[in-house]
Design a protein around this nucleic acid. Structure first.
Lengths: 339, 339
DNA sequence: CTGAAAGCGCTTACAG
DNA sequence: CTGAAAGCGCTTACAG
């Protein structure tokens, strides 16, 4: 009996009637007020637990939503922490959703989100036009985190300076003396990959070096694809002395390829990644990579979203935070230079 | 003016008065009902946005809390996903808190949590006696995830079979032919470390081998400490042929130590870790380790907590899920055996 | 210790 | 299109 879920929620007056007491008495029990006889109290408590009564929570948007497409191992946490930090300072609870591989048994995420009436939403997923419309219709402001594609001009977002990052990574290699620098790129559909590639090109051109299209290999953003691309590049007779990768996983693939060909990093080959995943400092050798300030980006996105949620205008609703080059031990002057 | 936060929340009747209309009219605007003149509607909307009125959310515990002490990079996410998955199927939002390094500027987490009246709470942190009392007083059931210390008998928890895991890891090494097997352990205060160590001892004894106390080195659960402990062990003339580590980070430290001494893994030294962190499959060679079913544990903990939150009795409120040995490439028969 | 009464913020018919 | 009236679930004095 008590396990059966009834669809009309149990009310305080229903409990009162069942217990044969008045509504105020039940209210006192629920709120732990004095002035209720011990046996009355325990009778009411028994009914409350039998019927599963729970006091309704009346809140005014003291939560926000954080939505992920897929919670990636290496960067999801950094984002969560940044959002958490800012929200907590403002007494806001962060409700986290990963919609992940869509399954019909799982309710559509946006219905739940809308029903919770959050103060705002930060989306690490690319929201569809329809989803954005639904949020707007309900007056729930949202911020897109690190958008992967083009976004209409009125959509607030927080990203990273991908172009500058690609440029400074490449310039670092040039300054070490490298002249044949390959780039293992990402899918053209992903905006940040295009930006990183253009940053690479820009640095090459700024140094007055020629761009060799055969040194640019676009592929998927995985370790295995990085390895395959690197094997192709490194088996060439005029192999590059340095490789800049669109992300860290690809760079770890380059490590594997180099090792299997007997090339030492950085003595025979310099490698630069992008993202600064936690594992990169554990790699052997520790990877030189472009740091994405995910934690700061998450904080900025949350501040922006909460500001919009308060109905205030944001001074800067579309921004990119600066990447920084983290130099570790996977880069060195090319062999030819060192002797 | 509009940015000023007033402490008495703005009500619908205040908006009605300001707009010179009735309360029902404002209600219609807020809920998007028909039957409001366009100019009335826009006048009311302007006031709503000016005073920042937000409709109160009346919910009956459709959220739960997930609390972390510190969100660790390697395992936090797996836990979050498991909790998320189960909660979402039941239409429950997961509010995530990391209390992290306590700071006076950040409000005390439990006050916020209590105020939100969640259906239940899953704690990846060791809750203090006082915190548990507060939760009980408010009728918020909780489950401790993977407790690190002893817990009173009435506290529900979900853990992993650490003792069995330590035992099967060690047995794996024995079956490969190892006889001198070292253990790099963890701090004695952490319950799971003691369990893993006892599992190691149990396997050694079950095989009729002697326990050599000098091969048991307790230290911190970090890579650096693992490396230091391994250097000590591996420099001995009678060095062990295999090392079982209390966690994966220590095992990665053993990798470093072995490399610096010119020992190959697994040819000269077998290594087993514990936890099965995502990075272990990327290590070189991929690490043999004891898999903790964090995702399943998180699902079980959430189901348990939600069951308790419904006021139902749980059949099994204190349980451990089985660990499994994941054999990769860091273990092999000892050199002496192979020729 | 109990509950009738008044009141809160909000919504829902429905009369004009 | 508007709002008076009744009603919802709940809380707060306060009379007995």
């Amino acid at each position: 009996m008590s396990g059966t879920a009834s669809h009309t929620p149990v009310t305080i007056s229903f409990i009162a009637e069942s217990a044969g007491v008045s509504v105020p008495t039940v209210s006192k029990v629920i709120n732990g007020r004095a002035g209720v006889a011990a046996d009355t109290r325990s009778r009411v408590e028994a009914l409350i637990s039998e019927y599963g009564y729970r006091k309704p929570v009346v809140t005014r948007n003291n939560t926000m939503e954080l939505v992920f497409d897929q919670l990636e191992h290496q960067w999801g946490l950094e984002i969560i922490r940044g959002v958490q930090r800012v929200a907590r300072e403002q007494g806001i609870g962060v409700i986290l959703t990963e919609f992940g591989p869509q399954s019909s048994t799982i309710r559509y995420w946006i219905d739940d989100t809308l029903a919770r009436r959050p103060a705002c939403l930060v989306s690490v997923a690319q929201l569809s036009d329809g989803e954005r419309d639904q949020l707007r219709a309900r007056g729930i402001p949202f911020v897109v985190f690190d958008p992967t594609g083009e976004l209409p001009d009125d959509v607030p977002f927080v990203g990273a300076t991908n172009w500058s990052g690609g440029r400074s990574a490449t310039r670092h290699l040039i300054e070490l003396g490298h002249r044949r620098i390959a780039m293992i790129g990402g899918p053209d559909a992903i905006l940040c990959c295009r930006a990183r590639l253009d940053g690479y090109r820009s640095a090459i051109e700024a140094a007055g070096l020629p761009i060799d299209p055969s040194l640019i290999v676009p592929t998927e953003l995985t370790r295995d694809h990085g390895q395959a691309a690197a094997l192709d590049l490194l088996r060439r007779p005029d192999r590059p002395t340095a490789v800049f990768c669109c992300n860290d996983l690809q760079a770890l693939g380059v490590y594997q390829a180099a090792r299997s060909l007997g090339l030492r990093i950085p003595a025979d080959l310099s490698v630069v990644g992008f993202d600064d995943l936690p594992i990169t400092s554990l790699a052997d050798p520790p990877l030189t990579t472009v740091h994405q300030p995910l934690f700061d980006m998450a904080q900025a996105a949350t501040e922006l979203a909460l500001t919009l949620g308060r109905g205030e205008k944001a001074r800067q609703p579309r921004l990119e935070l600066a990447t920084t080059l983290t130099v570790r031990n996977s880069t060195a002057p090319p062999a030819s230079r060192r002797r």
